[in-house]
Nucleic acid binder design. Structure first.
Length: 292
DNA sequence: CTAGGATCCTGTCAGC
DNA sequence: TGCTGACAGGATCCTA
């Protein structure tokens, strides 16, 4: 679930907590969740935090890096020596729950007493060790396309022609076509650009492509500025959940509520196997463009 | 090559 | 209450 803005939020926040700190111990509770020998990363110091699309990279000294992908249900929670907790990723009660718990797959203990918990209900996410110099050669990183801020409308338009029969939503979810969008921001971007998610990718005009790209940037900029959809800094015993979706999302998980633009009921449909939210009035399919 | 569906895994919720 | 199927903020693998 965490998409680019959430991972960027994690990167920024985590940086202030763990930069220059040394990993004292790594505990792995689920082998599937950690690739490589965790011992190798112990007694190494955090040098930098980077992000490639939805992947977070923690660079350590001695040419080592940790690559973290949260996939659908991953979350990172930093529990420091102070009463503050910094949590981001899949929103759940884990942000305030006892840690470690049933969903804790890996934890990293730092030399100052802080602990970073990697929780992941569905075990799709992972942490893996690789050489820092090999990060950009990792197959996942390597196939990532440009992010919306550096991609031009012409580039995107060309890519859409190569997938002309796929619904536009499926196309923009593909990280090798444009990088960073997930189910939330795909829906929000398409709503913002008034494009129906089932419209065939090849039928978007250059103007529509430009608008879609602009919308993706704006939607994600706005989310990052507000700390991602799930970011939360919790004070112990404070049960508040960061429910930003209410402030932020125009259509996502708002089925049956009025469209903020025209007031018509938002509908939920299925596109590319994913739950998809649209305003049937604002996002219409042009004649002949309907996806089969 | 593209397109679409199944699949990995755990948990929750609606409906019977 | 207990069971069942659908669904979930991702990406890969398999098939046609």
């Amino acid at each position: 679930m965490p998409e680019l803005p959430e991972v960027e939020t994690i990167r920024r926040g985590l940086k202030s907590f763990i930069l220059h700190k040394k990993i004292k111990k790594i505990e792995v509770f689920c082998d599937k969740s950690f690739q490589g020998n965790p011992k190798i990363a112990e007694n190494k110091t955090v040098k930098n935090l980077r992000r490639f699309g939805k992947a977070l990279i923690i660079d350590l000294d001695q040419n080592l890096s940790l690559m973290i992908h949260l996939r659908m249900t991953g979350q990172l929670i930093y529990d420091g020596s102070s009463p503050e907790r910094y949590a981001a990723g899949h929103p759940s009660d884990n942000f305030t729950a006892e840690l470690p718990n049933k969903q804790t797959r890996v934890l990293l203990r730092f030399n100052d007493g802080g602990t970073l918990y990697f929780n992941d209900q569905r075990k799709f996410g992972f942490i893996k060790i690789l050489e820092t110099k090999a990060v950009e050669d990792d197959p996942f990183i390597k196939k990532l396309a440009k992010e919306p801020w550096v991609m031009t409308a012409d580039e995107l338009y060309e890519k859409l022609q190569k997938h002309q029969n796929s619904p536009i939503k499926a196309t923009i979810l593909d990280q090798s076509i444009i990088c960073g969008l997930g189910n939330i921001y795909a829906d929000e971007s398409l709503f913002s650009a008034k494009i129906h998610p089932l419209q065939k990718s090849g039928t978007l005009t250059k103007e529509e492509t430009k608008l879609l790209l602009k919308s993706a940037r704006e939607v994600m900029d706005k989310s990052i500025a507000s700390g991602g959809s799930t970011m939360a800094t919790y004070v112990k015993a404070d049960g508040t959940k960061g429910d930003y979706l209410e402030l932020f999302a125009q259509v996502f998980r708002r089925e049956n509520q009025p469209c903020p633009r025209c007031g018509q009921k938002i509908k939920k449909i299925k596109v590319a196997g994913r739950g998809t939210h649209i305003c049937p009035h604002c996002q219409t399919l042009k004649e002949g463009n309907r996806h089969a």
